[in-house]
């Protein structure tokens, strides 16, 4: 069930030919991200193996179960090259589990859960409680324009501490941070990919295009 929010649909292609966007496809809603990126004109590769990292110009880490992604990324040798790529400036956008993967520090993680790191933040996993506490709401996100972003939080994390190198992009009414950026990295606690919200992906693709120049 794709619900398109009026006015957020892209009107023009923002990705120059030849640029490839990877979507980490170990587990989670990677197909939804691929769909949004393709509608924005990007060439999309699903990424499950280390060698598939070589040809991409940016990566999206989808929603899903962060502990499973972490285990599979390490088992199949993706974690290390990904960390190197992130340190080297690869643009990466993470939603929900993806945000957790990009955080320098995970709070309430599992036994031995590791993140790739990159964002100077502390993220609390599953910060709202069980599924009955999951919700949707509208957020003001100035960097994306005046129209509020309709955001879906599903057993979502929150950014508990934003370090000096990262910047908060959105907060809930109670002040908790739910979207951040730092250089070429972007992370959200919520899931633009399942609400027909294109602006975050557009914003990310702009970073990717700028980084490729």
């Amino acid at each position: 069930m794709t619900i398109l929010s009026v006015g957020t649909r892209p009107t023009e292609t923002v990705v120059p030919a030849g640029l490839r966007v990877g979507v980490l496809a170990l587990q989670g809603d990677f197909r939804e991200h691929a769909l949004v990126l393709r509608e924005l004109g990007a060439i999309v590769d699903l990424v499950r193996r280390p060698e598939e990292l070589d040809r991409i110009d940016g990566l999206v880490i989808p929603g899903g179960e962060s502990s499973v992604m972490d285990k599979l990324a390490r088992t199949f040798g993706l974690a290390e090259p990904l960390q190197t790529a992130i340190r080297g400036g690869l643009p990466v956008y993470g939603t929900c589990a993806g945000l957790i993967m990009l955080a320098d520090t995970i709070l309430d993680g599992m036994n031995g859960q590791q993140s790739l790191g990159g964002l100077d933040i502390k993220v609390r996993r599953n910060a709202f409680g069980s599924q009955t506490a999951s919700f949707e709401t509208d957020l003001d996100i100035p960097v994306l324009g005046d129209l509020p972003v309709h955001a879906v939080f599903i057993r979502a994390p929150v950014v508990e501490t934003v370090g000096p190198r990262a910047r908060a992009l959105a907060t809930l009414d109670d002040g908790r941070c739910v979207a951040v950026e730092q250089g070429n990295l972007l992370g959200t606690s919520f899931h633009p990919e399942i609400t027909g919200e294109y602006r975050f992906h557009q914003y990310f693709l702009q970073k990717l295009v700028a980084a490729a120049r």
């Binding site: 989670g28 990677f30 899903g64 919700f135 399942i194």
Partner: peptide
């Protein structure tokens, strides 16, 4: 559901968790 303030238990939120379990 129409967009409104905080909404719990909507179809989108319920179906959304299943979306996140995919490939698992």
């Amino acid at each position: 559901e129409s967009n409104s303030a905080e909404q719990f238990g909507s179809s989108r939120v319920k179906r959304g968790l299943a979306e996140m379990l995919k490939g698992g």
